[in-house]
Write a protein that binds this DNA or RNA. Structure first.
Lengths: 183, 183, 183, 183
DNA sequence: AATGAATGAGATTTCATTCAT
DNA sequence: AATGAATGAAATCTCATTCAT
């Protein structure tokens, strides 16, 4: 059982290395690079994460979970549209930080990854959206799926000249119902 | 001079073939496929377009030009914000149609491509934006560069479940100045 | 079109190299070895023979054809059982020479190879067998398929201590109808 | 001594597992599969059977011994050629049942395996063959070694369309001396 | 100028084998 | 003694790119 500790350490090294390499070279970086960065053999990656999607999911799982859990908390604390805005900020922060992650979701090869994100986060986003709609704070009938894809896309390639978060805020403000003219 | 004609014919065949293959298999389709579709040898592609970015630029040049030229025309015909909206629609249409093009812009390898697009279109977009700002129709100080990147990003991966144009419209509406409360 | 000559030369070099390597290391020798022996890059093999089965078939095609064509000739020249014996000798010679070929046929991976051999040779063998049966020279109802598999198997691993041809002759003699006791 | 018992139990589990896996996936099945089936670690296999040949020999030892012991018994009970035929049937049964075993013998890597079989069985076969020759029941001077290799080869890949036992019987009948013409 | 055959680097994946625990 | 995680050497296959013709 002592070995288990070793393996766990290794797995963590792998996750750290993968995260680092993903930032450096994108999520489709050669397996060999990740192995080298982690200081393990290539077989070790395949033992822990048989497919690339599994590795990516593992790399980002913690943050996806944190994001999912934040939804209800925000909704309880703020008016719906504010909560939605804050949650979207959280989501965007995550994506922007994970340089290259957003761009990845498009690829057919990463369907499982895409699905994991959606399965976990779309319901959360839906409840925020529904609450805002119920409160009459937003117009239209955009789905959570579309909103998240839009935000996800906006977060691709954020850099000095392109502040993704700013665009995201603009998008959310476009979502808000027009303020009724005062009487 | 006859050869010149030959070469020109070849170049056009190449552009047509590349456009077709780009739609079919994305802009990173194998060179061989493009050559085969054009009915020329692979060497011919390399002679005409030494890098893939050059080929892509050539493929889309006409449409980029058309888009650039539409700017002043729209501005002359409509109120600034309407003109901006229409121009953005035009730009988005172009990107959505060119499946995969938007996603490509991110890659460092295609810097030249990216730059061509920006050099040609940012000034046009800037003049539309400035006009709208001057008319008090928009708030904030978003640059044309950021707006175009945002729109470009939103256009990635449009499909049945994700209508990029809709998100783009939302973004533009977020740009509009809040209607001043009536007195 | 001059290049065609080059390519043809290359293809022949490939076939020669493959034949040599097959003898040395078996028909499942690494592609790289065959390429190296032929003095070409690995891609060249894949261009000429996309699958391993295609390469093997090509390597042995000439001899399979020669064997197939010998059947009718022998049948025309000799009494059926003699013709059958000679044809089987020919077939066995081929297999024994192609060290390792016989052993290969078993593998599921080489189904296409197996099928090519059978498609081409079973009909020939059948006509020899039928003629012998019609002449009352053989007993039983062994199929050409079984006979050929038997002969093929006997030819595996012929060497100094194991003379496959001798075993084949024994098998064929076991096929002959028992001489009717003289009156 | 308790550990000795453990080790013995393990060894038996390994043999059973190997036999099972050999049937399922052939004698060159991955070591890991055998270990998993036996419910032991891979290191345990290497401890007990450092080479694959040793494992295979161990797996089949019982049956090889049984076959060897049957020789004298059959010879005592039947006329020599009948005894030979029955013994060969026994040998063929063993090989046909051990799917893939016969094909394996060819490989240079399994020389030790090959040798074990021959060392144990050739003398038995020789005595049967000699007895038949002494009785004038067979012709020629085929060695036991060649006969066994022939039978071994015939047993490769027996299936629905190829009945190895039938071919083996044919071979043995080819061995019989021609019935002397009646006076 | 054009061709397309050839090259070969690089990416993935599988397992036999070792060795720290 | 046993475990099974780790290793890393193969082997396969795919293209971007070159270059002889």
């Amino acid at each position: 059982m002592t070995q288990r500790a070793d393996a766990r350490r290794n797995q963590q090294a792998l996750l750290d290395a993968a995260a680092e390499v993903f930032v450096r070279s994108g999520v489709d970086a050669p397996v060999r690079d990740i192995a080298a960065t982690a200081g393990v053999g290539m077989g070790t990656i395949y033992r822990h994460f048989p497919t690339r999607a599994e590795l990516i999911i593992a790399v980002y799982r913690h943050q996806v979970e944190a994001c999912a859990e934040a939804g209800p908390r925000l909704l309880a604390a703020d008016p719906p549209l504010v909560a939605l805005g804050r949650w979207i900020d959280l989501f965007a922060d995550f994506l922007v930080t994970k340089h290259g992650l957003a761009g990845l979701m498009q690829s057919d090869d990463f369907r499982p990854l895409h699905e994991y994100f959606l399965d976990r986060l779309v319901p959360v986003c839906t409840s925020l959206l529904d609450a805002a709609a119920a409160a009459g704070e937003i117009q239209g009938d955009l789905t959570a799926y579309e909103l998240m894809r839009g935000v996800g896309n906006l977060c691709i390639g954020s850099d000095d000249r392109y502040d993704a978060r700013r665009l995201v805020r603009l998008l959310v403000s476009g979502l808000a119902a027009p303020r009724p003219a005062s009487p």
